[in-house]
Design a binder for these strands. Sequence first.
DNA 1: CTGTGATATAGAACACTGTTCGCTATACTG
DNA 2: CAGTATAGCGAACAGTGTTCTATATCACAG
Lengths: 245, 245
Amino acid sequence: MSPTPQQRRAARHQQAGAGAGTPAARRGPSGGTKKPITVEAIVSTAFGIVETEGYEALTMRRVATALETGPSSLYAHVVNKEDLDELLIGRLCAAIDLPQPDPATWRQQIIGVCAQLRDQYLRYPGISRAAFAVAPSNLDTLRVGEGMLAIMLAGGVNPRAAAWAIDSLTLYVNAYSLEVSLLDTQPAHDEDGWVVSRAELLRRFAALPGTFPQTKRYAAELTAGTGHDRFAFTVGLMIDGLTHR
Amino acid sequence: MSPTPQQRRAARHQQAGAGAGTPAARRGPSGGTKKPITVEAIVSTAFGIVETEGYEALTMRRVATALETGPSSLYAHVVNKEDLDELLIGRLCAAIDLPQPDPATWRQQIIGVCAQLRDQYLRYPGISRAAFAVAPSNLDTLRVGEGMLAIMLAGGVNPRAAAWAIDSLTLYVNAYSLEVSLLDTQPAHDEDGWVVSRAELLRRFAALPGTFPQTKRYAAELTAGTGHDRFAFTVGLMIDGLTHR
DNA sequence: CTGTGATATAGAACACTGTTCGCTATACTG
DNA sequence: CAGTATAGCGAACAGTGTTCTATATCACAG
């Protein structure tokens, strides 16, 4: 008997759902003419959709039609959409490379892991929104946490501070990725729509009333954010604060 | 002629939409028997719904029925749901008290503003999700940014560092509030559902395989998060890192 | 070789969501 | 009093996640 989606999901949270057994490999009404629907196939096509059309476009129906089937067919392999989200985040975290802890370069190692997470998130725009809902007992996300914890402990950081800083860092990486995704998904519909470009934002800051003196004066600094400078700044900020205590 | 919702929204982004004119105060088919629907009424009832049932429950229909009308009636005062979200975040930010910058206590002042934001967000569970989507040209959110910028500049922080740090702080406050809301909205459905209590989380960490040595060893530190300790820790971390450079 | 039961696959439907179209009944203007 | 602008609102559209029920195929027992 192949595991039900519920059991599979439980295993992802260490709840060791009963017997696994053989995959069984039965075929449905379509016979062997079509590829069978598997969890892997669902996750793969889901990633494809998010990569090309963004997380907003990821619906059960969209995945189903991409697999040339109906929405209900997915529910034999996936508990619900939340489960699919968790699978995506899990596979994304599984792709993170965790270096062997090195006390000499632990700061760079942490930054490297954060940058990996960021790049993975940005590769699939908007997917970090799903990361907020993933429970902390998920094995894949826990693996990344374990890796970062090991690096920080090797660096001599106090355990409690390390634990909390990891939490903060992942939270910030999620939020940063989400914001960036939201901004460059909407392609600057200037005409009567918002978001706009940096130049337009500068113009608006300049046009602010007198109650915004600092914002007007330092508009250049406020809007300066080429590339991932802000990201590196903040991560560095937290790590530096971590060492000075 | 009273301003259309589009003009009202434009004004919120300084685009100074044409003539304001008198409110007009016309009455519809229901005559004077019922309170007229206003933007204020919509926002108020929306806040009430979010406060008692969470952001997930905030739908146009829910607001409409609370106002004893149909969904379409709202669209005369609000552009769309995104607009309503922005109104909510705007009013929330407008309630933030910004202290007169004091170079002696600027750190505490920043922490105070962040705590205010956090408490407002947590008072309306899940509403911080809407904050991610609000454009940076919104006047109400800009006001908070201006206040924090003034405080940091008074504290002698480098303008560019201050601008970026404010960005990071607000992003973190949003993310933290969202996570906390998500966690305690779902009231620990232990039986075959996730989330669970701290005790259960500790048990699961203890039951982890040997590939998670640090997580198992420091399970106590990882799960220790009474109250807003983690919040204060992270905000302090960033501010400290800000001063040591 | 035939019958039976398990099971992966679908189709249709339900209860929702945000949003728009077109009508009605009102209140102000000339 | 006539005319018109307009706030309100019912119904409908195109979506969403999810579930119920039926079907078509397979592996296996006899």
